[in-house]
Design a binder for these strands. Structure first.
Ligand SMILES: [Mn+2]
Ligand SMILES: [Mn+2]
Ligand SMILES: [Mn+2]
Ligand SMILES: [Mn+2]
Lengths: 227, 227
DNA sequence: TTTTATTTTTAGCCAAGGCTAAAATAACGC
DNA sequence: GCGTTATTTTAGCCTTGGCTAAAAATAAAA
């Protein structure tokens, strides 16, 4: 049901990116998001951030009190979730249909997520079989912006002799993803913790019939579901 | 062979759109393209056009002499052709894979044509089976920007009792395309000219087992290849 | 409770890409 | 050839979204 008379508010690329960044930061640690945190996550300057969140506040997309940081309104949250939905659906497309590797898709999806067309996303979603997760194991919000939360743990939180199946990555830099490839770890891979060093959090794990050492840095960037 | 050290010049959305518009206008009528023509085709003001073509001239993308209009350089031509290549490949994707109708895809392709990634287009092209034409019958430039020219005529140029097969549309407004649908005319449809009125250029044509009247306005917007 | 350090905001500047109004140039009609 | 008209350019202004430097507010230390 396409309604030509419904004026669909458009947002600029910059506005969408700010809302998305705030959305992610709110999920990392509850409460208001600081100006500095936004600036860092967007590789921009705090003064630029102040400027933009003031504009977003005027448009009722965030609530903002001077020196207190910003928080998305319901409307802002919906818009951000929709941008993330688009990002992740396009990532699925790039991997599943165009055979890109999971470490190559993020930059392209950063551009594709801003394409404006409800209908396009509806059809893309259908074409892809309405996937629930993107190639990095991140959940895809539904068309109302609702994210189903799954109970997943960081591999670093798992105890010796426990097993888990890899369900996602916390970081998705190409470097990290390529490391995982080299170790034959991908979404769905079963991992057993054979040993854990208290001093530095490093582990010995079993993947398939290989056993090897991983640092804490690796373990705290891999999400697993315990079995 | 991806070469990370080759700096790929990026152009802004506005620059790409100007080059594309000039490219199309050059093909409509040879020689320099006038400021006013560009302004009209882009729904902008002549003063804005002058501004931009001066910038494009500095970047050696067009040659420009005051009051003499603009003409793309080889480099400019290549960039424009590549944008058009992307536009038309995305239109094929939208119609062939997402089942959009041919009158719905242009606006979305206007956005998608600016996505920056060589690799993406290489893979998209392959995914689509390296099509030669877009859903409106327009040829898709190859990766070097070369357009294969086909000999096609406007239906209005065809004489009484000649037959032709529809190979494209000169206009692709939704209104016109929807008219063609209603008349069951699409790319590949065989059309026979049964009668032609000299006074106003209107025609009686046969399409399938239907015979009907069309105005000159219709006939001069349909490309056919005579049989 | 001061002093100091950190965070955040303000003020002022810049480039891109629009616009309008006015000036300059070219083209046309006689 | 000359005045009129149309086209094109310039000048000056605006908005968006950046930036730096300085000021203000808050937080941490002493
Ligand atoms: Mn991503
Ligand atoms: Mn992802
Ligand atoms: Mn088109
Ligand atoms: Mn087309």
């Amino acid at each position: 049901m396409k309604n030509v008379f419904t004026f669909v508010h458009m947002f600029t690329l910059a506005e969408e990116n700010y809302m998305k960044a705030i959305f992610h930061l709110e999920h990392e640690s509850a409460g208001e998001v600081s100006t500095n945190a936004i600036a860092e996550s967007m590789a921009t300057k705090p003064s630029s951030v102040t400027d933009m969140i003031q504009k977003l506040a005027e448009k009722k997309l965030v609530v903002y009190k001077r020196y207190k940081g910003a928080k998305l309104t319901e409307k802002g949250k919906k818009i951000a979730a929709n941008v993330i939905r688009k990002h992740r659906l396009w990532e699925v497309f790039l991997v599943e249909k165009l055979n890109f590797h999971w470490d190559e898709v993020h930059e392209i999806a950063e551009q594709l997520e801003h394409i404006q067309s409800e209908e396009l996303i509806t059809r893309l979603d259908k074409f892809l079989g309405s996937p629930d997760f993107d190639p990095h194991g991140d959940p895809i919000p539904d068309k109302h912006g609702v994210l189903k939360r799954t109970e997943k743990k960081l591999l670093s939180e798992i105890e010796k002799n426990q097993k888990g199946v890899c369900v996602g990555v916390r970081e998705s830099s190409a470097d990290f993803l390529q490391y995982l490839d080299k170790k034959k770890i991908s979404i769905g891979t079963k991992i057993t913790v054979l040993g854990k060093e208290f001093f530095d959090g490093s582990m010995i794990i079993q993947v398939g019939n290989q056993q090897f050492f991983i640092s804490h840095k690796i373990a705290e960037n891999l999400y697993v579901q315990t079995l």
